[in-house]
């Protein structure tokens, strides 16, 4: 039986831990501003007029919505680094000694990991919504809830990788490569129709594609080139379920016994 109180205590601890990343959060915020105010505005002028027609809005709006998802993803994966920090300082043994089950621990971490990045991204998300506007509040609420699931799924994904690999060096490189590919092979930066067929195959099933297109739909950007909301929601639910489940199973099996490098 999972105690929601225990899950919340674990999540709350992760929310507090997040503040230690002050400098990374500052860097990310500056990165966001530079992306929007410089890159987004200039590239908006660089593209063919048909791009705007196809995506149903200006490229700037399309890009700003995508950047929020990139930011949400990149701040949520920090949770994996927290696990290595804890292994390094022997905190894992302390966590295992607490009257909290392994399931509650990993569930709390997934929720805490997702929630803290959501709180961090919120002001920037509101800024982007102010730029784009919200035409249908109900649509937006559906997208918003799905983005929560997306963030929890990313946290589960990062935890799964961290506890499977147990080597901070390998985790760092794998996450670097995944980060390089998962963002670029998604619709966060550009629509699916402009990708060569060999990239499109991967991008179509990328959780960042689901999240970015769903967020755009929630903000009222509707276009045939975006992933349909039903498919995007289904994709996010599958992503969340898979990685929360994997995270719980692997966390239970591999957290004990040391072997962290």
């Amino acid at each position: 039986m999972i105690s929601l109180r225990n899950v919340w205590i674990v999540a709350e601890r992760d929310l507090r831990t997040f503040l230690q990343y002050k400098f990374l959060l500052i860097m990310r915020a500056i990165w966001f501003l530079a992306q929007i105010a410089l890159f987004g505005l200039i590239v908006n002028r660089m593209l063919k007029p048909e791009v705007e027609l196809e995506i149903g809005t200006s490229y700037f709006n399309f890009y700003a919505a995508g950047i929020i998802i990139t930011l949400l993803y990149s701040t949520t994966v920090f949770i994996g680094y927290d696990i290595y920090e804890e292994a390094d300082h022997g905190v894992i043994e302390y966590l295992l000694s607490l009257p909290v089950s392994r399931k509650e621990l990993v569930l709390g971490r997934s929720i805490g990991g997702g929630l803290r990045s959501f709180i961090y991204v919120s002001p920037m998300l509101l800024f982007v919504l102010y730029l784009i506007g919200v035409s249908n509040p109900l649509q937006f609420m559906v997208a918003f809830v799905s983005l929560f699931l997306f963030a929890f799924g990313v946290a589960g994904f990062s935890i799964t990788l961290a506890v499977s690999i147990k080597s901070s060096d390998k985790f760092d490189i794998l996450l670097g490569i995944v980060d390089a590919l998962i963002v670029r092979l998604s619709t966060t930066l550009y629509p699916l129709v402009y990708m060569p067929a060999y990239y499109r195959v991967v991008a179509r099933f990328n959780p960042l594609t689901f999240a970015a297109d769903l967020f755009r739909w929630g903000a009222g950007i509707e276009s045939a080139v975006l992933t349909s909301p039903a498919i995007a929601i289904l994709g996010i639910v599958l992503f969340f379920s898979t990685f929360t489940f994997l995270g719980i199973v692997l966390h239970e099996k591999r957290l004990e016994g040391g072997g962290w490098q």
Binding site: D169, K170, D172, I173, L175, G176, I177, D179, A180, L181
Partner: peptide
């Protein structure tokens, strides 16, 4: 590892 990650990016 950072170098490999940056190169891949």
């Amino acid at each position: 590892w950072w170098i490999v990650g940056m190169l891949s990016m």
